[in-house]
């Protein structure tokens, strides 16, 4: 009940904000009868309507993960974000080994297998991408190889 009400409220606000910002879209001088604003505003209105229905007629609450699991999930997101930033400057091998090792540990919390998984996945995927699929991946950061 509560989850859906909160979700509906958030969705309602996003929908209204979306509709409001759609009214600010610039139209060019060669406008067609509909123009660039109408459809986004329409979408915003329908979404707001749906959000209202969800608030008024909520479903039962889902089973939310415990606080500790939520923390683990947040950590996983942080690792992935770090990985996204690291993939460019640090090459493929190192970030991939670390990121997949951490994810593996989070799914099955055993240290050694997780570390091995990270190293193997990193090396194996690099071989597949580079030599079989021919993608232009950089193995190590440029400063390593000179």
């Amino acid at each position: 009940m509560l989850s859906d009400r909160i979700f509906g409220l958030v969705a309602l606000m996003v929908a209204l904000a979306y509709g409001a910002s759609a009214t600010q879209i610039q139209a060019s001088f060669m406008a067609d009868p509909v123009g660039p604003r109408t459809f986004p505003i329409l979408v915003g209105c329908v979404a707001a309507l749906c959000a209202l229905v969800i608030i008024l007629r909520p479903d039962d609450d889902p089973e939310w993960p415990s606080l500790r699991t939520l923390g683990a999930l947040a950590f996983a997101v942080a690792v992935l974000v770090g990985y996204a930033y690291a993939l460019g400057p640090f090459g493929f091998l190192l970030p991939t080994a670390i990121a997949s090792g951490v994810l593996s540990y989070q799914i099955r919390p055993r240290l050694l297998p997780a570390a091995l998984t990270g190293i193997r996945l990193s090396a194996g995927l690099f071989a597949i991408f580079k030599f079989i699929l021919g993608l232009g991946l950089v193995a190590l950061p440029a400063s390593f190889t000179g």
């Binding site: 996204a84 993939l87 990121a99 997780a114 998984t117 996945l121 993608l135």
Partner: peptide, 23 residues
């Protein structure tokens, strides 16, 4: 799954990265 899912994630990252090379 401890091997499968990290593998899938890394493949998705590389796939999307290879499209646009943009973080």
């Amino acid at each position: 799954p401890g091997v499968l899912l990290p593998g899938v994630t890394m493949v998705s990252f590389v796939g999307i990265y290879s499209l646009s090379s943009s973080y």
